[in-house]
Amino acid sequence: MPKAAVWDEAEAKDIICRHDGREGSMLPILHDLQGVFGCIPPAAVRLVADALNLTRAEVHGVISFYHDFREQPAGRHVLKLCRAEACQSMDGERLARELLDRLGLEWGDTTPDGRLTVEATYCLGLCACAPSAMLDGEPVARLTPASLQDIVREAGR
C-alpha cells in the first residue's frame, strides 16, 4: 500500500483544478485526493465544496455514502472482508465477527498500532471461492480461521 502524503493545501487545490470543467467531477476529485493523502480530511471537504459550489454537507454525504472513502488514513494494510450473500452463506459473517472481536475492532476501524484496517466490502466476484477477502488489493479466497490468523500475523510485521 502506498504511503500517504502529508496534507498540502496547494497540492489539494491542484488536484481539484485538474478536474475543472469536467462533468460529474466530485468522485474523481475525491478518489484523487484520497490516492495522494490517504484519506479525505475536513480541509479537503471545504476545498471541494467551494470548487464545486456545493455545501460541505453535500460533499461529506458522498464521502460517508461510499465505503471506499475515508476521513482518516487507513492502517499500513487494509483487509476488506466480503459481506455479500455467497460469502455469508459460507460462514463469512462468523469469521469476520470473530476476527473483529479478537482484534477489538468494528468495521472500518484500525488496530491501535496502525498496522491493519478492516473494512467491509460487498462482493469481490469470488463467489465460487467464498468466503473471500482482499488484502492490500490482492484477493484471498476460501478464508478459514487459520488463514485469517495468518493474514493478521503477516500484517503485523
Rank of each mutant, 00 (worst) to 15 (best):
W107D: 10
L30A: 12
T111Y: 06
E93H: 06
L116P: 05
K80C: 04
D32M: 10
G92H: 03
R56I: 13
S89G: 00
L99H: 00
G38Q: 10
K80N: 06
L103W: 05
H77T: 04
P112F: 02
D101K: 06
A74D: 15
D50A: 12
E106W: 02
A86M: 03
S89P: 00
H67F: 02
A57D: 13
L47G: 13
E98A: 04
D68E: 13
T117Y: 04
E85Y: 01
A120C: 04
V59P: 12
A84P: 00
Q72R: 15
A49H: 05
V62S: 12
H60L: 15
L30G: 14
P112T: 05
I63K: 12
H67Q: 12
V45L: 03
T111W: 10
D113P: 00
T117S: 10
L33Q: 04
D113K: 06
Q72P: 02
E98N: 02
R115V: 08
E119G: 00
Q34D: 02
R94I: 02
C87R: 01
A43V: 09
R70A: 11
V62D: 09
D91R: 10
E93R: 09
A51L: 05
L79V: 12
P73R: 15
R83F: 04
L105Q: 08
R97S: 04
P73K: 14
L105F: 00
A43P: 13
A57N: 15
L116Q: 07
A86I: 00
D109L: 03
P112N: 07
F69L: 08
T117Q: 07
V36W: 07
R46L: 10
R97Y: 00
W107V: 07
Y66C: 13
W107T: 10
D32C: 09
G35A: 08
G75N: 05
E58R: 14
L105H: 03
G75M: 11
G35F: 05
R46Y: 02
T117L: 09
A120W: 07
T111I: 04
Q88I: 03
L95T: 06
Q72M: 12
V78L: 06
E71G: 14
E106I: 06
R83A: 08
D32W: 05
R83C: 08
Q34F: 11
R115L: 14
H31I: 11
P73W: 01
E58P: 06
V45G: 05
C82F: 08
S89N: 09
D50H: 15
E106Q: 13
L81Y: 07
D91P: 00
L105A: 05
L103S: 03
V48N: 09
P73A: 13
E98F: 00
P42K: 11
F37E: 03
A43L: 04
D32H: 11
F65M: 05
L116V: 03
Y66V: 12
W107S: 11
H67A: 15
R76N: 02
R102T: 02
A120E: 14
V48K: 04
C87G: 01
Q88R: 12
P73S: 00
T121P: 06
G92Y: 10
G61A: 15
R97H: 08
I63Q: 14
Q88Y: 07
R97K: 07
L81I: 15
R70T: 15
L54I: 09
I40L: 01
E93N: 04
R46G: 07
A86C: 04
W107I: 03
L100W: 10
G75V: 12
N53G: 13
